[in-house]
Design a binder for these strands. Structure first.
Length: 1067
RNA sequence: GGGCGUAUAGCUCAGCAGGUUAGAGCGCGAUCCUGAUAAGAUCGAGGUCGGUGGUUCGAGUCCACCUACGCCCA
């Protein structure tokens, strides 16, 4: 006996029971240890200082589904372990917030040791929730986690640094980075984008630079512009003291104009927008190139960087550069390399001058001007006032534009040329691009689109952060920076300092205390920087195994990964850092297959965020519908790469549509199997009916499809194929075969039905196991494992189903499709004629677009008659004269062949009618070519190239689709009417039995009465009394009013009503 | 400003070597079927397939431009 199945299943509760069983039987550990051939997975590490959300559910579900599939195929999954990302600015900012800090000085005062201790603790703040979440969503990972802050992990990243160092790929340079003066650090591009706004109100000033002369060789304009003003535009007056040059567009047209007694120079195209109309007259025209080499009087003297010597001869001149655009401004661009134009400065040999320090305050050198020490944005008005007083301000106003802010603290950022450490990834651009070509991306467009594009525009990776909680960069230097070493292992460092460092925490500040005296170069100290935390996660293929210090063989087997999966925002994040580290170190990709997920939006298409209050917690969904429903929704609702709108209602729909359908089919099977005491492998013979063969053919086709889709990492297609099959299994196979299960004879036909349905359910349970691990487990346990001690105890330890080639039958599947189309058309025709299916009809005419479709229907004619309740099916061919034929070209074929002739050809075919059309239809049906004149030409059409349609025969109800036509004879004879009436009565009684709460096997005393339609009732009973009695298990049938204690219903009958009364019979 | 993606029914989404009447599910209304079903079937209302132009005998599908949104970059 199977365990009985509750049709009112509560999935969340069911899932809790499964979780308990997995625990009690150690299933997770067994699954993790199973398999032989390796399949390598990399877990992208989250940080546990925030709660798990829906976006974690989707990525973890897509990770899990592939791993379960591979595991069922007998693979041993390598790297199926937790990983935690623990370093980085976000962690530090959390702690700063808690302590009420406002920048690095606060941290230094507080003490780095204590600060880092708090950071280390805080990354585990929600670890319990993460553990519970991971378990509840059935994401199976070993708890043997890799943790990026552990010494072993850090040591591996040091090894990587050393590899890069030895190959000259680590370098130090000025580089403009986005700098947050409050946090005191550079921000990654990723971080900058988080805080940028495009509606920032800033000053907009037009500034005049007085021309004083020219360089050698002289510009084309020579000295004629001496005393004139070059007009430049800026929204950052605070950068003006750092100005070193003015740039023009080399081929653009410039003008010298007379304006209020002064001569001004700007781009011709922009003069109108800079100066009021009619306020100026154009004196002369130049090309941009003509101006190159002019010298001008600086507005202020900028301050050279520490240790830099400046050749002032190179400054304060006009250059030409591509960065100049004529979209806005004046066509003359103020260049301040320190605050953004470093590349331009370098190209033209300009020095880098500063006006503002790293703290965001104007340098003390400007104290005599009155704005030294002011925060840079607050210095803007002072600088503008100063210029105005000196007559160097043409115009000032305000503008709304894009400006970046620190994503955590909201402070305006500055572009700032700082000395930082870089990895020279640009040297490997070609390799990065080539290795990317080996990766299978889902969706495909990411490879050459977003990711490929990003690689094409590769820039060197800024790797250093002037922060505290991170992997310390293992570079030690002497005081003047003339000697540097990169340490690649703990042992190497121990050798340098001559003591054991085994118990040392490798983080700051402890690592900073590790110094040694170099006999030639003096005291060696570590540089203060820590690594970009993306470097940590990108190093995980190496560092998770403590390679090369340990586990060399695992690493070598486990690189590259067969599969990873994260959301699309990781293209510039983890996907890139993995790829970059792998390419630079090993010249191969880090992963072979990747599913790149779209984001989950709320039901209005807006990103979920705490501040908007539109966040749906996974727990809310899971407790309402269960994990299987949520997972199934995530797999089937949209292709994985698409952004998706999420709502509870959609998960509920997913549950009803798939899980409940599957569950009810399963419940049906178990109910009857138990009544019949049916067991699998019982040795009885089965006589398979065509519909059984169809189910098995469709099932094996499904196995084939799902397997192929999985091999292509196409989870969406795989899941939807299963959903489609389950729908057909339930709504066609089971519905059509109910009587075979409940009939009393235990013959070979019944055995065939049981075997077929059993096979389908067991196979579907296995196919669905990677997607919906809980319900699959329940079904498999009850149907297989609890009956058969030799079977694996869990569906997740079972083997993936194999295709039985002998059962595949594409013809049978196609024929059934044809049948289903015919059934659907027949119902449509009935609806049109307002004839319910219970009313039998005499005949149905059918014609199909092709003979093979027609034969398909013919094969299942009995089913068609039964489904549509008709006595006979007749087939229309071109010889029948009851219908009018219409002909159309098969455009798909004809279009290519006849091109421009198509419209005329279509018209010529359409114009055929009557006998001509019938003759043409007959020719096509007989496989003969059709000749007809088109546009004066004699055209020959092959039979395939013509589509034949037909009108409805007279007096028939007709429905038509895809070339198939079904026509019902709508004449209801008296005989048919009585049969229909009998079926009505049976239906009413069955309904009444159900409403009265009778058991299926209860016998009844039936009362029927019909005041208005006595004639019909009498006539019906005269003919169908026995049929009605036996169908409804009536031991007695009385015409007349039921007794008072009877259960009574009244229904429509003929043109009147009938009263149905039932009393349970005592047998 | 640039790149990538998305835009199809009230909602969630399919569709595409360019081809005949643009689909599914949900929701709504109606009818039907049903002794597994919270199910199913049929019909109906509901579509300028984001917009404009182009290529073509023919464009939701290809091309160009534009708009909105998302992500990423500057």
């Amino acid at each position: 006996m199977f365990k009985s199945v509750d049709p009112n299943v509560k999935f969340p509760q069911l899932e809790e029971e499964v979780l308990a069983w997995w625990d009690a039987n150690n299933i997770v550990a067994k699954a993790l240890a199973s398999g032989e051939k390796p399949f390598v997975f990399y877990e992208g590490p989250p940080t546990a200082n925030g709660r798990p959300g829906l976006h974690h559910t989707i990525s973890r579900s897509f990770k899990d589904v592939i791993l379960r599939y591979r595991s069922m195929q007998g693979y041993r999954i390598i790297g199926r372990r937790e990983g935690w990302d623990t370093h980085g600015l976000p962690v530090e900012i959390e702690i700063e917030k808690k302590l009420g800090f406002s920048g690095k000085p606060d941290i230094e005062r507080f003490g780095i040791a204590e600060f880092n201790r708090l950071c280390r603790e805080s990354v585990w703040e929600y670890i319990q929730e993460w553990k519970a979440f991971t378990k509840r969503i059935a994401f199976w990972l070993s708890e043997d986690a890799y943790i990026t802050y552990e010494n072993d992990y850090i040591e591996s990243t040091w090894w990587i640094f050393r590899q890069l160092w030895d190959r000259g790929l680590l370098f130090r340079d000025y580089k403009v980075t986005m700098h947050c003066p409050r946090c005191g650090t550079s921000l990654s591009d990723h971080e900058v984008s988080l805080g940028a706004r495009d509606d920032v109100d800033d000053p907009s000033v037009y500034v005049k630079f007085r021309v004083t002369g020219f360089t050698t060789p002289p510009p084309a304009v020579d000295g004629t512009l001496n005393g004139a003003f070059l007009v430049a535009w800026t929204t950052t007056p605070w950068t003006l003291p750092a100005n070193v040059a003015l740039a023009v567009k080399h081929d653009a047209e410039y003008v010298e104009v007379e304006h209020q007694g002064e001569r001004l120079v700007m781009a011709a195209a922009l003069a109108q927008s800079v100066l009021p109309a009619d306020s100026f007259t154009v004196l002369r025209h130049f090309r941009g190139n003509d101006l190159v080499g002019l010298r001008y009087e600086p507005l202020f003297r900028g301050v050279p960087g520490d240790g830099d010597t400046v050749d002032w001869e190179t400054t304060y001149r006009v250059i030409a550069d591509e960065i100049v655009s004529l979209d806005d401004g004046t066509g003359i661009v103020h260049i301040a390399p320190a605050y953004g134009d470093l590349e331009v400065g370098r190209k033209h040999g300009l020095p880098t001058l500063f006006s503002v320090g790293l703290d965001g305050k104007v340098l003390p050198q400007f104290s005599e001007l009155g704005f030294a020490g002011k925060f840079f944005k607050e210095a803007d008005p002072d600088i503008t006032r100063n210029l105005k007083a000196r007559g160097l301000l043409l115009r000032s106003g305000r503008v709304r534009h894009y400006y970046p802010f620190c994503w955590r603290c909201g402070t305006p950022l500055l572009y700032y040329a700082k000395r930082s450490w870089y990895i020279r990834t640009t040297a490997f651009k070609a390799d990065l691009v080539a290795n990317n070509q080996q990766i299978h991306w889902v969706p495909e467009h990411i490879r050459d689109g977003r990711f490929g594009n990003w690689l094409e525009n590769n820039i060197d990776w800024a790797i250093s952060r002037e922060r505290y909680w991170g992997t310390p960069i293992p570079i030690w230097t002497n005081a003047d920076g003339s000697h540097m070493v990169c340490i690649g292992s703990l042992a190497e460092l121990e050798a340098k300092v001559g003591r054991s460092l085994r118990d040392l925490d490798l983080h700051r500040p402890y690592i900073d205390e590790v110094v040694w005296e170099d006999p030639q170069h003096g005291l060696m100290r570590r540089i203060p920087d820590v690594a970009d935390c993306w470097f940590d996660s990108g190093s995980m293929p190496v560092a998770q195994w403590h390679y090369p210090f340990e586990h060399r063989e695992i690493f070598e087997m486990a690189h590259p990964a067969d599969y990873i999966c994260e959301a699309v925002d990781q293209t510039r994040g983890w996907f890139y850092t993995l790829h970059a580290v792998s390419t630079l170190l090993f010249d191969r990709p880090a992963f072979k297959n990747v599913i790149c997920l779209g984001h989950i939006l709320d039901e209005h298409g807006i990103k979920m965020s705490k501040s908007k209050g539109n966040v749906i917690e996974p727990e809310e969904v899971i407790s309402a519908y269960g994990v299987d429903a949520l997972r199934w929704y995530l797999f089937t609702a949209a292709p994985p790469g698409n952004a998706r709108r999420f709502s509870m209602a959609l998960v509920s729909e997913s549950m009803r549509k798939f899980l409940l359908t599957l569950w009810n089919t399963y419940a049906f099977f178990v109910t009857y199997a138990n009544l019949d005491q049916w067991q699998p492998n019982n040795g009885r013979t089965a006589e398979l009916q065509p519909i059984d063969r169809w189910a098995l053919a469709a099932l094996n086709q499904l196995v084939q499809q799902v397997t192929a889709a999985f091999e292509d990492y196409d989870v969406y297609t795989a899941a939807n194929a299963i959903e489609h099959f389950v729908d057909e299994l339930s709504n066609w196979y089971v519905r059509r075969n109910r009587r075979r299960f409940w009939k009393s004879e235990g013959d070979a036909d019944k055995e065939a039905a049981y075997q077929t349905l059993y096979t389908c359910l067991v196979t579907v349970a296995k196919l669905a196991a990677p997607f919906t691990p809980f319900v699959s487990e329940v079904m498999y346990r009850n149907l297989v494992a609890e009956r058969d001690p030799s079977a694996p105890e869990s569906v997740h330890l079972a083997r993936w189903p194999q295709v039985d080639q002998t059962l595949l039958d594409p013809q049978l599947v196609a024929d059934t499709e044809a049948l289903l189309t015919a059934v659907s058309l027949g119902r449509a025709a009935r609806k049109q004629a307002n004839l319910k299916v219970r009313q039998p009809l005499s005949e149905l005419w059918l014609r199909a677009s092709t003979t093979s479709v027609l034969n398909g229907v013919r094969r299942f004619e009995a089913e068609l008659r039964d489904e549509l309740n008709v006595k006979a099916v007749r087939y229309l061919d071109a010889s029948s004269t009851v219908v009018e034929y219409r002909l159309k070209p098969n455009l798909r074929l004809v279009g290519k062949k006849f091109g421009k002739l198509v419209p005329a050809l279509t018209a010529a075919l359409r114009d055929l009618s009557g006998a001509a059309a019938r003759a043409a239809a007959q020719a096509v049906e007989a496989g003969q070519p059709l000749r007809l004149p088109v546009d004066g030409q004699d055209v020959e059409l092959l039979p395939d190239e013509v589509l034949v349609e037909s009108s409805a025969p007279e007096g028939y109800a007709v429905a038509e689709a895809d070339g198939m036509l079904v026509a019902l004879n709508t004449t209801v004879t008296e005989e048919l009417r009585l049969e229909g009436a009998a079926r009505d009565l049976v239906r009413y009684v069955q309904d009444a039995r159900k409403s009265a709460g009778l058991a299926i096997s209860d016998r009844i005393h039936l009362f029927l009465n019909s005041a208005d339609e006595t004639g019909l009732l009498t006539a019906t009973l005269a003919r169908y009394r026995d049929y009605i009695s036996s169908e409804t298990l009536s031991v007695e049938l009385t015409v007349g009013n039921p007794p008072a204690d009877a259960y009574t219903e009244t229904d429509e009958f003929g043109d009147g009503m009938v009263t149905v009364g039932i009393v349970k019979a005592t047998v």
